[in-house]
Amino acid sequence: MSARVPVVEHAEHHPGATEYIRIALVLTVITAAEVAVYYVPSLRPVIMPMLMVLSATKFALVVMFYMHLKFDNRLFSGFFIFGLVCAAFMITAFITLFHLLSAPKAF
């Protein structure tokens, strides 16, 4: 039987300052890579997936480490990921409906 639980603020492992700075370095490198990719014409054909992977990595790093989602209660991940999935579904649907399956424009 689960009784009410006292709120414990910092029971979980939190990364320390060194780890935070290391992650910041990684984020910096990725950002530099993103901008660099933008200026390399020969990468144009694959720029979309490349940029998406790079920014998804940054996104994940901040969420997992700076927002502690990796170490925190799974309920929080649940909320956030459910919102994220719904939003991603909506955006994907919009792209599909408006740009891939769209009826011809009348302009």
Binding site: S2, R4, V5, P6, V7, V8, E9, N73, L75, F76, F79, F80, F82, G83, L84, C86, A87, A88, M90, I91, F94
Partner: peptide, 30 residues
């Protein structure tokens, strides 16, 4: 004091808000 999950209510609220805000920015980005 105490909660059913041991989680702070304001923190639960913030995460719920962030899930919700995903939809807000999802609509804008869409």
């Amino acid at each position: 004091g105490e909660t059913s999950t041991g989680l702070n209510s304001r923190k639960v609220l913030m995460w719920a808000f962030l899930g919700s805000d995903c939809m807000l920015f999802g609509s804008l980005i869409g």
